[in-house]
Nucleic acid binder design. Structure first.
Lengths: 231, 231
DNA sequence: CGGGCTTTTTACGACATCTTGAGGGCGCCA
DNA sequence: TGGCGCCCTCAAGATGTCGTAAAAAGCCCG
């Protein structure tokens, strides 16, 4: 299953079908919300903000196509349309108005679930893992590969950045010269501790308020270096 | 030609159906590539790197499901499966293996085209789900495949456009040379970073106010490129 | 088959980064 | 106090990367 506890809003007026959908979805560990009318559906979509909408076209108060249109004015969650109408024109209209899929009744529950997985797979692709690291005025955004100091972007060369992220990986702990060299320069770096001195100097120069008395990028004499996030 | 058109790879062995699809797609101004066999289809997918794949399940040499699986090892473009088999189990398998939609023959061409539009709409979206993208005076309409600068249309070649949309997809984040090459040129691009230099230069020339000091299409030395919307 | 557009390839100058070596400071200990 | 080890800074040369232009090759369409 793509998303274990994704929430699904079912907008469907027939009690029988609603019951069937609820049973199928909950037994596959989806969180289910239900609406019997179009207007309540729109309201719940706004308040619940579900991961996906299952929409019946034949609703008493408003046309399903209108619901699709209204939803798409602000929402981008997937919409799967379910309808007794199998006419091709209906499908095209719904899809072009913003629906992501169209199922004609009667349909198998397995296919519905598969199509739900596809839809959730799509929206899951766009999610970005926020991985940020802070120390004082310095912010390191690992996802964007971007370093800022007082919200001013700091440019780091590839080696500088790799060195910094390696230090972050072991934040708070000491890293020996040997280990740092191996992780940043590769296994053949040997004992070139001079590299470390040069690059640590450059990092301090770029990041520390007072490079000669570093708060974050500290030296552990005779051993290696350590990064302290608290200063 | 004023704007680059989406390309579709049709993998289908029956000549009649192939001819039908070709006619329908070209008359809707899609760029069409064709394969009669699964293995050729896989090869063409890799070399052409199309925006979408139309795949018949009943192929002579390999099962369509296998094709889906193989494609998904490296490719993320939408796959729409077409099949005479209407069994629910087949649909579920195909969808779970990575297909994005499933159409049972016979189907209306209008519905197929609508479902193609849906699929392309999906892949054209950026992180926030918008189909339009702005940076300064430049507007990119991902739905229409149209780029304007100060409301003047800018003509981009297919590769230029794909490169731009790929950068938009990862807006704000760095994309490595390798990743860009894979997404724009396909899996066999290798290490041709020279392509990137040439095409980034062309994009800057067409889009940036001062191409030699880019505001949006920026270089991350030693790593890759990044698109910044804020400048 | 020819012309125009696109893509690929080649060549080279400019520039940023990396590497390397020299020099100096600091603290520890004999 | 002087030697020694460790660390930091600086800068110059080597290296590699990037940008640009333009030629060559490929492709599509009439």
């Amino acid at each position: 299953m793509t998303e274990p506890n994704a929430s699904v809003l079912v907008i469907e007026d027939e009690p029988q079908m609603r019951k069937f959908l609820r049973a199928s979805l909950t037994s596959n560990s989806y969180q289910v919300y239900e609406s019997e009318t179009a207007s309540d559906g729109l309201a719940q979509a706004a308040s619940r903000n579900p991961d996906l909408v299952l929409l019946d076209l034949g609703l008493p108060d408003l046309d399903g196509l209108t619901v699709t249109e209204r939803l798409r004015e602000w929402a981008q969650m997937p919409i799967i349309v379910i309808s007794a109408r199998g006419k091709e024109e209906d499908k095209i209209r719904a899809l072009d108005l913003g629906a992501d899929d169209y199922l004609t009744k009667p349909f198998g529950i397995g296919e519905l679930l598969a199509r739900i997985r596809v839809a959730l797979r799509h929206s899951a692709r766009n999610e970005t893992g926020e991985t940020q690291f802070r120390m004082g005025a310095i912010k390191v955004d690992l996802g964007r590969r971007q370093v800022t100091k007082d919200d001013q972007e700091i440019h780091l060369t590839p080696i500088e950045y790799k060195l910094l992220t390696t230090l972050i990986k072991y934040e708070g702990r000491v890293i020996t010269h040997r280990q740092l060299l191996k992780e940043v320069w590769g296994p053949n770096a040997g004992e070139q501790t001079q590299y470390l001195r040069v690059y640590m100097g450059q990092l301090r120069h770029k990041l520390e308020a007072d490079p000669s008395r570093p708060r974050f990028l500290t030296t552990e004499p005779g051993v290696g270096y350590r990064l302290r996030s608290d200063g």
